[in-house]
Each structure stands twice: as C-alpha cells, then as structure tokens.
C-alpha cells in the first residue's frame, strides 16, 4: 500500500522539482504524454486503469462526419514485437461524439485532442466546423494518414499537394491548435512535413502506422479482413524515431512523436529526437497503465539526470 503522505511528497517534488509542461503548437499540456488515437477509445474505457487527470492530453478515436461501420474481421494480427490492424475508422460520427462522448471528457482537467478524418475536403471542413463549436475540444489532430480506409486517409497523406490542401481547409475552419498526423508511407517525410507546415498546421504528429500485411499459410489467403493493415508497436519505433529526427530539424513546428513507445526510455528517445510531446498507443493494450508509468518514468529520468525542464531535452540529440 502506498502511504498517501508519500504520494503527496512525490507530487510536490514532481511539480516543484521538474517542469514537465509543454506547449504543442498552442496546446498547453501539463506533461508531454498523450494517447495515440484509436488505441484509447473515447477515454472511459481506460478510466479503471488510468487517472485521466494525470494525462498531458487525451487523444480520442478518429472521428468522421458520418458514422463508419469499419472493416470486416479479422482486424488485428500479431507480428514480432508489433501488431497489424485494419479497424477502418469505425466510429459513431462526429455528432454522436459531441453529444455522447465529449460531455464525459469535460469532467477531467485534461485537454482533449480530437482526431478527424474524411473522404473529401468538404467532410474535413464540416467535421472541423462542428468540433470547433463544441465545448471541451482543445485541439484537432488531422488524420491524413490512415492506411485502412479506401477513400481519403492515406491517399491524402501520401500526396503532398492533397495533404496540404486538407490542412488548408481545416485551418480555414478553426482557430483550435491543428496537428497534422503524417503517414510514414511516403518517399520523403521532410517534403510533406514542409507542405503541411506552409498550409497552416500548428504541429505535426508522426508517425501513423506503416502499411503491411500478413498471409495465412494454412488458408493461403491474406489474414486480415481488409487484406492490408497498419503496423504499430515496438517493431516500428526506429523508423518513427528517424522520421521525428528528420522532420524536427527540417520544419519549425513542434512534433507529437509516436510509434512503438512502450516505456519512459522510449518516450525520452523521441523527445531527444525532437518531439515536444509523445503519444502512447499499442502499449496501452499491453499495459493499461502504460501512460502513467511513462509520466512517472520521465520525471524520474529528469531527476536522475539533473534536468529541470523537459523542454531542454527536446531535440537535444541534434541541437
């Protein structure tokens, strides 16, 4: 049992000893740790395991204008140190989210980042308008990189001009901090990062999943219901760290780094590569309290290394 007094001492030392707060393109976060969209539902799913008030931000499941059914099963396959998924943006639609899910999140003292996706520029514009008018939305993460939907998604994210166009349309319709979530399935991450920065993004999120697939050798057919899926988990971490490193040096925007972060050491690696904040995704499935452990671990690392401000670590590997 933890003595409540010890806990209090820890908190005070945490807040007084080191500064964990960061600013992600206008989004003020009390620490740099958020959840990766699609791995944390709308928040309540993990409330039994996580103190949602302790998170730097909650990033919710990808939301579209109309409800989406999602893809046929199987939607998930395990790979060495990773998973492939092809959920297909199943979600109840933006109006349902605002009416049914957002009020719950307003109970917490934690900013909410809403991930948005669309089939067309008009979809993105309309979702943006509806969310911008909703109380309790702190930032938008624009998904131009989902590998699992036929229209939109990655199609926008892998074409520089289309990616920039989506960001421009969202920008025109909101004053909320705008985070562009980039696809790693591109030839040059730096070029696309530059284009979305010019189009008005306030921050970049990278990386989304890497396109992959698995074939069942018994049936001799693709394993996943949607044939291809997005690879996440520790297997992709080195790719993600490399892309954060490249984008951070090329573009003057804060970065939300993600891709296989399992623990505080992994998170710190992303921060050193240039991420201002980090998102925890697949790790939630393995350890439901992963985000809490990571926040504590980052604090500990800072104390152990005499770092007083987390911002001093951002990009320290190349600065």
């Amino acid at each position: 049992m933890t003595n409540p007094a010890d806990n209090l001492t820890d908190r005070q030392a945490g807040s007084q000893g080191v500064n964990l707060s960061v600013n992600l393109g206008g989004l003020q976060m009390k620490n740099p740790v958020t959840t990766a969209s699609g791995t944390f539902g709308f928040g309540p799913e993990y409330a039994p395991y996580v103190d949602l008030n302790r998170l730097g931000a909650i990033t919710v499941k990808g939301t579209t204008l109309e409800p989406r059914k999602g893809n046929p099963t199987p939607r998930i396959a395990e790979t060495p140190a990773g998973i492939l998924n092809c959920i297909g943006l199943q979600n109840p639609g933006v109006d349902h989210f605002i009416r049914e899910d957002l009020p719950y999140l307003r109970n917490y003292d934690t900013p909410v980042i809403v991930n948005i996706a669309g089939n067309s520029l008009d979809d993105y514009a309309e979702v943006t308008r509806r969310l911008s008018g909703a109380q309790g939305v702190s930032a938008l993460e624009v998904n131009i990189s989902c590998p699992n939907v036929k229209q939109g998604g990655m199609v926008f994210g892998t074409d520089c001009m289309m990616a920039a166009e989506v960001i421009r349309v969202v920008r025109e319709n909101t004053t909320l901090p705008l985070i562009a979530k980039l696809s790693p399935n591109v030839t040059d991450i730096v070029e696309i990062a530059g284009r979305v920065a010019e189009a008005g993004a306030d921050a970049l999120a990278l990386i989304n999943t890497l396109l992959g697939m698995k074939i069942d050798i018994r049936s001799r057919k693709p394993f996943l219901g949607n044939i291809m899926g997005g690879l996440s988990g520790p297997a992709i971490r080195p790719v993600a760290v490399r892309m954060v490193w490249q984008a951070a040096q090329a573009v003057r925007l804060p970065i939300l780094g993600m891709g296989g972060i399992m623990n505080a050491e992994d998170a710190i690696e992303f921060i050193l590569a240039g991420a201002t904040a980090v998102a925890v995704g697949t790790a939630n499935f393995v350890n439901p309290a992963a985000t809490m452990d990571i926040i504590t671990g980052i604090q500990q690392y800072m104390r152990d290394n005499g770092i007083t401000d987390i911002n001093d670590l951002v990009g320290a590997a190349w600065k």
């Binding site: 939607r75 998973i83 959920i87």
Partner: peptide
C-alpha cells in the same frame, strides 16, 4: 471469440 487487442472496448479489433 475473436482476435482481441485491448480487451476494454477501446481499439475495436474484436468485433462481430
């Protein structure tokens, strides 16, 4: 029974 991810209703992998 279905291939499952989170087990808590967050990831939407195990649907029917």
């Amino acid at each position: 029974e279905e291939y499952m991810g989170c087990g808590v209703g967050a990831c939407l992998a195990c649907v029917c």
